[in-house]
Computed example of a mutant assay.
Amino acid sequence: MQIIRKANQSDLLALATINTINWRETYADILPDEYLNTLSVSEIQKKWQTFIDSPVTTLQVVEIDNEIAGFVATSDDDQIENATYVDALHISNRFQRKGLGTKLLNKVLEEAHKHNKRVTIAILKGNENARNLYTKLGAVHLEDFTDHFGSVVTKSERLIW
């Protein structure tokens, strides 16, 4: 059975593990190994804890047969008025290509539209799988920008619905 629900304390390890593995695999050809090897499940777990604790962020999981398959994290966009920012969308590798990312994102879009909000997301240049999904779901280019991950400088893109 598949459900989408609000994340809780007991989900944090699974979310952080999915997040860490996805970053290491997705960005292996985009970000240097020196950076990817510094990613820590425990540090990422702390990040998602702040999303659970905050009243202005959301963290939702998709669960299949009581196993966490992925998650989406959102917050208020600090650059665009009346917009929701998708901080992260991750699906565990073994559950990818089953429409779960689309379902999670559609849930975010529906909730934002109920409140007459736009939705934004940032992606690293070169992450074509993500870009293809988002544009297929109606996102359009907003801007290119330079991002920083530790001492690593990247070329990134913001999309908007």
Rank of each mutant, 00 (worst) to 15 (best):
M1F: 10
I4K: 04
R5E: 06
R5W: 01
A7W: 03
N8V: 15
Q9R: 13
Q9A: 14
Q9Y: 05
Q9I: 07
D11V: 09
D11K: 06
D11I: 06
L13N: 07
A14F: 05
N19M: 08
N19G: 01
I21L: 09
I21T: 11
N22W: 00
Y27A: 01
A28E: 03
I30S: 05
I30C: 04
L31C: 02
P32M: 09
D33S: 13
D33K: 05
E34W: 00
Y35R: 02
Y35I: 07
Y35W: 06
L36H: 00
L36S: 05
N37R: 05
N37I: 01
N37T: 12
V41T: 10
V41W: 06
K46Q: 15
K47V: 13
W48A: 03
Q49F: 06
T50E: 11
S54N: 07
V56T: 15
V56R: 11
T58A: 13
L59K: 08
Q60K: 12
Q60P: 02
V61A: 11
V61R: 03
E63W: 07
N66P: 01
A69C: 09
V72M: 01
D77N: 15
D77G: 13
Q79I: 11
Y85N: 09
V86M: 04
L89K: 04
H90S: 14
I91P: 00
I91A: 06
N93W: 07
N93I: 15
R94D: 07
F95T: 15
K98I: 14
K98E: 13
G99F: 00
G99E: 03
L100N: 02
L100V: 14
L100I: 15
G101P: 01
T102K: 03
T102A: 14
K103W: 00
L104C: 12
L105I: 01
N106T: 15
L109W: 02
L109S: 13
E111K: 07
E111Y: 11
H113Q: 13
H115T: 13
K117V: 08
V119N: 07
A122S: 14
A122I: 12
I123H: 07
L124N: 08
L124F: 09
L124P: 00
L124C: 08
K125H: 10
K125F: 12
G126E: 09
G126P: 00
N129M: 10
N129H: 11
N132G: 13
L133F: 12
L133R: 05
Y134K: 11
T135G: 11
K136V: 04
A139I: 01
A139F: 14
V140Y: 11
L142I: 13
L142G: 08
L142D: 11
F145C: 02
F145R: 11
F145E: 08
F145P: 04
T146W: 02
T146V: 15
D147K: 01
D147H: 06
F149N: 09
G150Q: 01
S151D: 09
K155T: 04
S156E: 04
S156F: 01
E157N: 08
R158P: 05
I160V: 12
